[in-house]
Every structure is written in C-alpha cells, then in structure tokens.
C-alpha cells in the first residue's frame, strides 16, 4: 500500500490549523445533513470498520451514520457478538479486519493506548473513538464545533469543565483542544477527582462550582463515571449533586446563563438536576447532531485523497 495511513489517535497530534480545518469542513457537512438527500458519494467504495469493544450508543451510531452519509460501506464489530468473546486478541481481530480490505478502523477500547497499538498492526487509517482514560478526540472536536457555532468563536472563550476530570477521556481531549485554539479552561472538581499533575495541562482549577459558574461562558458537565471510579472519592451521589451538580437552585440564581454542554449520557440528579436537564436539552441534542457532521469531516479528511502523491502523479 502506497503512502502512510492517516490516523486520528490524539488531539495532541493536531495543529491549531488542522483543528479549524476540520471544524470548517464540518460546517459544509452540516449543510449536507440538511439536504433532502442527506448523502454524498464522496467515500463510495471505501470500507470502514467500527470496532467497539466497550459499550457505546451515540458514538458508534454517530460514526456509522457519518460513514453512510459519505457512501462508505460500514461493518460493525462489537464485543458482545464477535469472536472477542472467544478470546481472540485485539491483534488478531485487527489483522482479520485489515484482511477484509478495510480502509479505516474506528476503535473504542477500555484500555488507554489500544488505538495507538492498532496502528502498528494494520496498514489502514485508525480513528480513536475513545480509549480508556486517555482520549476521545472526535468528541472534543464536536464540542469545539458546537461552542464555535453557538458562541461565535473559540479564541478567549471561557470554558469550565466540571466533574470527574480524572477518569474522563472527554475532559483530556477537550483540555488539549481548547488550549490549542486559545480558549481558557477552568477545571472544577473535588480534589479526589482531579488527576495528579494536572498543572502540566496549563489550566486553572477550583473546588467551587459557584466560582466556575460566575466565570464561564460555557459550562461543560462530565458524567460521573461510576463504572471507572475505584474506591470512595466522594461520600454519596446526593452529596456530589449538592456540591458539584447543576441544581435547580444554582441554575435559577444565575443572571447570565452559560451554554451548558454534556457528552452524554446524563445522570439526572447527579451532575445535573432533571428539570435543568430538560431546559438545556436542545443544546445537548445539538451536540449529538453536530457529532455526525464532525465525524464526516474526520472520515473525509482521512480517507479522501488517501493515495500518495507519487501514485497520483503516475496515474495522471
């Protein structure tokens, strides 16, 4: 195969220009999604494999829809139904997928670094759809897209990320991305949910949600990931809600309401009160809708023009 496969593993690998390139491309694809026929032939003949080895609803559906809107063929592998349950290793699964002639693998894995490993075993594009506590780059790109659309720009935008920072790949990717595009980031969490060495990320931290609310333009709530949290980090979910949840009382008190975002699925009554969740639902739904356009942009960027310039010159 000619040329290097192009991958999206980490936001750290993208430059500011590449990020804004993807966001602009995503606006063009958002327009495609408003057409009567929401499909373009751009990736006809390409095969994309969704390898989801950890539960996921919206990300998998979003990638599948994005691929189909671009006319690519999609194969779904998920942990429950594939030979993974028979003990097949990731490496063997990867080889199988590649032998089937896939042009890209979209991978979600519970282990941080799995997508990076995959790039060594297959010669096609690898896209990280969330690996352990490491990164979830397409989520961050779609979040930036929504912020840019709703707030008019990213430069100097004040974004407070609230909740379980330590276990959140969404937070990590967002921090990296927001730093690159010149937004300001404030992390708000109990000290037990802030990772060690967070200072290296070049962000401010606070333990007071009210301080964060008074400061931010965008309030990004994270899901409390009960399944990843080992041992007691806070006394109870009720107490978490009291101190770090967007309660009705806090929300009503706010004079200037920030844009509220959440990667989903929301734990109502924990990070956000149910009534507030209903109120901000349209913007959360906007995130899901933007997800398809942004993932179309990523797939298009990685898979179109994928032939190296040498072969391109030869064929002309």
């Amino acid at each position: 195969m000619a040329g290097e496969a192009k991958n999206l593993i980490s936001i750290a690998d993208l430059s500011k220009d590449e990020i804004s390139g993807i966001l602009s491309l995503a606006s063009s694809f958002a327009e495609v999604l408003r057409r009567p026929v929401k499909k373009v032939p751009a990736l006809r003949g390409k095969t994309i494999v969704n390898l989801f080895l950890e539960p996921s609803t919206r990300t998998r559906m979003s990638f599948e829809l994005a691929a189909k809107r671009l006319s690519a063929d999609v194969v779904n592998f998920s942990s429950g139904t594939s030979s993974i349950v028979k003990g097949e290793s990731l490496k063997d699964t990867a080889k199988t997928i590649f032998s089937m002639g896939a042009d890209a693998v979209v991978v979600r894995h519970q282990s941080s670094g799995a997508p990076q490993m995959l790039t060594k075993w297959v010669d096609c594009s690898v896209i990280n759809a969330g690996d352990g506590m490491h990164e979830h780059p397409t989520q961050a790109l779609l979040d930036l897209y929504v912020m840019r659309e709703r707030m008019g720009g990213l430069e100097g935008l004040k974004v407070a990320i609230v909740g379980d920072i330590e276990h959140s790949r969404v937070a990590r990717s967002n921090i990296l991305a927001l730093n690159k595009v010149g937004s300001k980031v404030l992390l708000c969490a109990p000290r037990t949910l802030l990772p060690a060495g967070i200072e290296e990320f070049g962000v401010e931290t606070t333990v007071s949600l009210d301080e964060a609310l008074g400061w931010c333009d965008v309030l990004y709530l994270l899901r409390v990931q009960a399944e990843r949290i080992e041992g007691p980090r806070f006394p109870s979910l009720e107490e978490y809600h009291e101190n770090y949840g967007l309660s009705e009382k806090r929300w009503d008190k706010l004079e200037k309401k920030p844009l509220v975002m959440h990667p989903g699925p929301m734990n109502r009554g924990v990070e956000i009160a149910s009534s507030v969740a209903d109120e901000v639902e349209p913007s959360i739904a906007g995130q899901v809708a933007a997800g398809v356009a942004v993932r179309m942009a990523v797939l298009y960027k990685l898979l179109s023009g994928s032939v190296s310039s040498e072969r391109f010159e030869r064929e002309q």
Binding site: L25, S28, F29, V32, V40, P41, A42, L43, G45, K46, L70, Y300, K301, S304, G305, S306, V307, S309, R311, F312, E315
Partner: peptide
C-alpha cells in the same frame, strides 16, 4: 463531494 477523482487527488476542500 461529487467528483469522480476524490480518491486519486489530494483532498479537496469542501
């Protein structure tokens, strides 16, 4: 997005 040479030329902007 409708071009017939998407896969043989450098990625065009949309």
């Amino acid at each position: 997005l409708y071009r017939d040479d998407i896969s043989i030329r450098p990625t065009p902007d949309v």
